[in-house]
Design a protein around this nucleic acid. Structure first.
Lengths: 248, 248
DNA sequence: GCATATTTGTCCGTATGTATC
DNA sequence: CGATACATACGGACAAATATG
């Protein structure tokens, strides 16, 4: 007994091996954004596989947002700079197939954005503070609703950046766009847009003041409150208690 | 002036249109997990494209975790039940190409898991409370380190489930496995594993008591503290202040 | 258990539109 | 502008794997 323990052999497709190798080259930094992959014909020689196999691998790499190939490009597929597009795609899919409710998404935003505010209150630079103020000023000056929302987004973007955590920054961005995609039309059709906009500006000014004062817990609490007030109307009654659980 | 405003035509690949249609069918629920797609030959007839195009589309759908095809399967590709595998993949890639530091990942865990504890203190059922207690008991009984970590994970899993938020549940799971993948070998090689395990059990007991008492803020604070104590040694000195910013 | 039919995985060749030099 | 090389898409072919009778 106790001889060598063999592991089951996972039959791995040819295109997967191609994907793995190119992926490793990109993620390890051996291939940098802007650099080019060899042409499909070169790749089929280097990997000793057919054209179809190379193409299936490139489709997967493209779906993961790592490369992009254009017809006729003599330089081969381009290695792309990092974007959260793939994360965005998979989270959007998740929201649909896992049937995430708007309440869950808003709750997640409350958690992430309030944490960003908490950290920003400690770690923000003076330049970022100025950016936040400028965003609020542009919110005040916004004439149409779309511009207002855009400046609202830019405020939250600066706060997320000021948190110093790239993962928080990316996830707030992704989840926010999903939420806005779900209810942007409803927001635009709100009956008392002016009042909502005034209240939103007031909330942002309070958050900004807390961040400026370095009071992280207050900034976090205000952020949660602002988000609740902004979205609660669009959340079914039964799910609002779960949101309020984050307000103390 | 002012004639019809034409929009630029986005040249869309044939395989992308196939992907879109199948994706829509799955995400809308027209195709449920366990059901089968038509065979590749049927698909090329239905979409009026070549088999290569169908195959490239299937590779993309497979990369997104929506379907799986096996060689020789007469029933066609299988529609898969939801898994966060695609999210896991894209976030792992993100961690590498965006060069996420361990500190950022741990900080993200502190945010998510403490929020889960906060919500769980309010929303947990008695059954879930019992599950948490059982997990801690199994942690106490664990003989080897791997079993201990496994029970640790199951505790956090129950808490995340008790939060009532599927997105929190999934993201805690994904980020945790990434963090563990980064430093599991270091954890196993810790010089004073016994002391660490005792401390971890104590922390979990405290969190459990707070959750049982319904004290969400306390449970959240204890969760952040426990995670900091567990991982701080593996985070470079310069990045620890960012972690401590979450401890008040 | 075995033979058969079907399907996928992979390969090859070709035609067409396109981007670059 | 022309020539070249490229990606896109098509169609046909064979071997290995799978399910069915």
């Amino acid at each position: 007994m106790g001889g060598p323990r063999f592991e089951p052999v996972r039959t791995v497709r040819a295109y997967e091996r191609v994907v793995e190798q190119v992926e490793e080259a990109i993620e390890s930094g051996a291939l940098s954004p802007g650099e080019r992959l060899p042409s499909e014909r070169d790749l089929m020689v280097q990997f000793s596989v057919s054209r179809s196999t190379v193409r299936e691998a490139l489709r997967v790499l493209q779906a993961r947002g790592l490369v992009r190939s254009r017809p006729g490009d003599p330089h081969g597929a381009e290695v792309l700079p990092f974007t959260p597009a793939a994360l965005h795609k998979s989270m959007t899919t998740l929201a649909r197939v896992a049937e995430l409710s708007l309440a869950e998404l808003v709750q997640f935003r409350m958690v992430l954005d309030s944490s960003a505010s908490l950290l920003a209150a400690r770690l923000r630079t003076d330049g970022q503070l100025a950016e936040m103020g400028a965003a609020v000023a542009r919110m005040r000056a916004a004439t149409d609703h779309d511009a207002f929302v855009a400046e609202d987004v830019s405020f939250h973007d600066v706060v997320a950046r000021a948190s110093g955590n790239k993962l928080i920054q990316i996830c707030t961005d992704v989840v926010r766009s999903i939420v806005l995609g779900l209810i942007s039309e409803k927001l635009a059709a709100a009956h008392d847009r002016q009042a909502l906009m005034r209240q939103t500006i007031k909330h942002h000014e309070e958050v900004l003041a807390a961040v400026r004062a370095g009071d992280g817990p207050l900034a976090a609490r205000l952020t949660r409150k602002a988000m609740y007030d902004y979205y609660a109307d669009y959340v079914p009654d039964g799910e609002r208690p779960a949101l309020r659980a984050l307000l103390e």
